[in-house]
């Protein structure tokens, strides 16, 4: 699960208000470099909940080796320089949570992540 994917995921458990952002409890994180795709990251950035990106990065930081290049605390307005875009791309696309949990902020419900796939299925009493 990329941090980009995480930015879109919510908890649907009965009783949640927003179920977002999900807190990451990471057990295994891998970094896999991939070619920088400026067009893609530029297109996606404005749609993201940037706060959640920062939060997620903090939550997995201690498992990320080597430490990624810094990204701005707030999404810069206007055109973003390439170095920043590369750093953002790296955070969004190259950091993968392989094992761990996603925790619903409203209910505390934990959704397991196994082999990089989060399981967001609800139990019958949660619908």
């Amino acid at each position: 699960m990329r941090l980009l994917t995480h930015n879109y995921l919510i908890s649907n458990v009965k009783g949640t208000k927003e179920g977002y952002p999900l807190q990451i409890e990471a057990e295994e994180v891998v970094i896999e470099d991939s070619p920088f795709d400026q067009e893609l990251v530029t297109g996606i950035l404005p749609k993201l909940n940037y706060e959640a990106v920062i939060g997620a990065l903090h939550q997995v930081a201690d498992k990320v080796e080597p430490k990624p290049a810094d990204i701005p605390e707030k999404l810069p307005e206007g055109e973003i320089d390439t170095a920043t875009l590369e750093a953002l791309y790296h955070v969004l696309f190259n950091i993968h949570v392989i094992e761990g949990h996603l925790v619903c902020p409203d209910t505390g419900r934990k959704f397991p992540i196994k082999q990089g796939i989060p399981n967001m299925i609800l139990h019958e009493d949660e619908i």
Binding site: M1, R2, L4, T5, Y8, L9, I10, S11, N12, Y20, E32, D33, S34, P35, D37, N49, F93, N94, H96, G116, I117, P118, N119, M120, I121, L122, I127
Partner: peptide, 23 residues
Amino acid sequence: EHREGLRDRPAVAVADCMHVPLR
């Protein structure tokens, strides 16, 4: 070639279409 990273680790989640876990 430069999208192989996406292919090797596609973004997927187990979920029911009655409750899509997306914002």
